[in-house]
Nucleic acid binder design. Structure first.
Lengths: 153, 153
DNA sequence: AATGATATGAAAATAGTTTGCACATGCAGT
DNA sequence: ACTGCATGTGCAAACTATTTTCATATCATT
């Protein structure tokens, strides 16, 4: 009997990427791989940064726009708001933190994890018949330092 | 050009708005009030929509940009991401829903409330010495209908 | 009402995004 | 491996969004 190997154990992330593209009837091309790599290696990037980095690899900005649109359509990436920025991140980036406290004063971002929130979200989704893919919680306020400064000012 | 605004209505929240502006050493002007009203009455708006609505009240787009920047600086408004849009909403809009399930397929947005999540967020904030102002939880996935369609496809 | 400081609108400059099109490339079938 | 051809890519240009500049209008104070 043969093991039913999971893709993630047999194939590297780029092979999985290629596979997922092909499965969706889309072509596996050099620019698409390049953009995937940038997001994979450099983590969440803003559109301008992604265009810039891709540019230095010889990928045109137009191609970046079109590829981001494609990736979004295929759910390869999601767009998350962080403070005032919009960042693009790979959907299956399990390292990503999804819960943030953003200081409106200094811009500091405090990541945290909360099993309680995840559990509650699961519960609500189930109740709504909603098939949960990913989520993001962003809280805004003042960090310890800025709150202290504001109090004395 | 004359503004198409009138001062004649109930001004409770508007008086507060005026006071807060003045307290910050900023001027209370007709365009600023107009933009405040739009956000107050029409709830969260995207930048293009706000520019459009303000335009039909005789307020220039440049003024909208500058006023939004001012309001943001004074914490009158916050920018929230919803699906792919960025929306502007008044910070003290207690009617606002802060928890959403966004369907990646059809774009439907399901609002929900969760005391459990609020409580957990309070707890985490306190532990971090973070002074919480507002928050937003956005979950992405497939709504009941789209999940059913996807399963049979 | 007069004054001085600042906000506003109009035009122009700049940045960000989309579209049209000729050429290049991935990939299915030999 | 080669070929055909559907599709992706880069470039230029159109279009849209945002910022800057500056003369004028408006606000708040006297």
């Amino acid at each position: 009997m043969q093991y039913l190997l999971k893709y993630s154990e047999t194939m590297n992330h780029e092979a999985i990427f290629k596979d997922r593209l092909r499965a969706a009837g889309e072509r596996f091309t050099t620019p698409r791989l390049g953009i995937f790599r940038l997001l994979y290696r450099q983590g969440p990037l803003s559109m301008p940064k992604l265009i810039d980095r891709a540019g230095s690899e010889g990928i045109d900005s137009v191609t970046v726009y079109r590829t981001v649109e494609l990736f979004r359509r295929l759910d390869f990436i999601q767009e998350v708001g962080l403070g005032r920025q919009r960042l693009l991140e790979l959907s299956d980036d399990y390292e990503a933190h999804h819960h943030h406290l953003v200081c409106g004063q200094c811009g500091r971002i405090i990541d945290f994890d909360s099993a309680a929130i995840e559990a509650e979200l699961q519960r609500v989704s189930r109740a709504q018949g909603f098939q949960l893919r990913t989520h993001q919680l962003e809280a805004t306020g003042l960090c310890r330092q800025c709150a202290a400064t504001a109090a004395t000012a």
